[in-house]
């Protein structure tokens, strides 16, 4: 087991190297100049040249790459734009990013799992069609449009919730009020896939022999469905959620832009637009790693839980 985890961890090294080289190649092979942004739209040629020199952008690319990697791992890599350590910047975003993802996930689960279970139990009923229809609906609208509609309804017209921004940690009233709308907008996609997965997974489980046995033994319907059915249907659902949660970090870019939410996705795209090379480098590397590590965790946990699954 331990050797398996170790091997997986060692396998992360080429991933990190590949990611870093790839990102760096994109940054360097494509046109654009960070110095042009830093020096401002009215800068003279001299200032642009001096700015390039100030940030070492005039050195050969391989020197820049080695310096960037070296600085990243010694924690000395500074964002060109903010002049702050990229590690600090990324960590600073972590609470807002995680809170948004967490709220989206909770909203999605609260709605999706009951809806999926009922849809499966009452297969082909109105409820089944309605919940599947709504789930598909939710995944078919661009999230930026849902976002604006929510803002107009709940912030401008009803004035129940603040229109945008981060209100502080989630356990404060203000923090919670701020996170509800972006959390809901972000939850729609997760909600749709979870509802559908819950339904199909439940359908599969409900046709198994042990469910029939339980029914035959005279167990109550609720107990059969929740106790025996849902319990066994949960594994694929949880896998899917784990996967999607890792993706939420980067996938929330549009939601974060609409709601002016200071998350990691917005940090990354602003860095891309400003060609803040060290920061792009660090955020993409970070987001990629989160994804890989979460997937690794899921795999490892499965081996722990289920001895039948083995990784050699």
């Amino acid at each position: 087991m331990i050797s398996y985890i170790l091997r997986r961890l060692v396998a992360l090294i080429p991933v990190v190297l590949f990611l870093s080289l790839f990102v760096f190649a994109i940054l360097k092979l494509t046109p654009g100049d960070p110095a042009a942004i830093l020096a401002g739209p009215q800068a003279s040629a001299d200032v642009i040249e001096l700015t390039r020199a100030k940030f070492g952008l005039d050195q050969p690319w391989y020197v820049q790459y080695v310096l960037m990697m070296q600085n990243l791992f010694t924690g000395q890599l500074d964002s060109i734009y903010y002049g702050e350590s990229v590690t600090a910047l990324v960590l600073q975003r972590l609470p807002a990013t995680l809170e948004l993802g967490f709220v989206a996930m909770v909203i999605a689960l609260i709605v999706a799992i009951p809806a999926g279970v009922i849809a499966a139990v009452r297969r082909n009923s109105i409820f089944d069609y309605a919940s599947m229809g709504i789930a598909l609906f939710g995944v078919s609208i661009p999230v930026f449009f849902t976002g604006i509609l929510l803002i107009y309804v709940f912030a401008v017209t009803l004035q129940w919730l603040p229109a945008s921004g981060y209100g502080g940690p989630i356990w404060t009233v203000e923090g919670l009020r701020h996170v509800i709308m972006p959390g809901f907008a972000l939850s729609l996609v997760l909600m749709a896939s979870t509802t559908r997965l819950t339904r199909s997974s439940m359908l599969e489980v409900l046709s198994e022999d042990y469910i029939r046995t339980a029914r035959a033994k005279g167990a109550g319907e609720a107990r059969v469905v929740v106790g025996h059915g849902l319990r066994n249907a949960l594994i694929p659902i949880v896998t899917n959620i784990g996967n999607q949660f890792a993706r939420l970090f980067a996938g929330a870019v549009l939601t974060e832009t609409v709601f002016a939410w200071p998350g990691a996705g917005r940090l990354a795209i602003n860095a891309i637009f400003r060609r803040d090379e060290p920061l792009v480098f660090a955020t993409v590397l970070f987001l990629g790693l989160v994804y890989v590590v979460v997937n690794l965790l899921i795999d490892v946990l499965y081996t722990v839980i289920n001895p039948r699954i083995s990784y050699e």
């Binding site: 396998a11 080429p14 991933v15 590949f18 990611l19 790839f22 990102v23 994109i26 940054l27 494509t30 046109p31 654009g32 993706r247 970090f249 980067a250 996938g251 870019v253 549009l254 996705g265 990354a268 795209i269 891309i272 637009f273 792009v280 955020t283 993409v284 987001l287 990629g288 790693l289 994804y291 890989v292």
Partner: peptide, 23 residues
């Protein structure tokens, strides 16, 4: 498969933005 796994670890929307912004 290793290559594809690595490729998959790049957050796609960011990749798209970077490429489109640059190309």
């Amino acid at each position: 498969m290793r290559f594809l796994e690595m490729w998959n670890s790049i957050p796609f929307i960011l990749l798209a933005i970077a490429l489109m912004a640059a190309l």
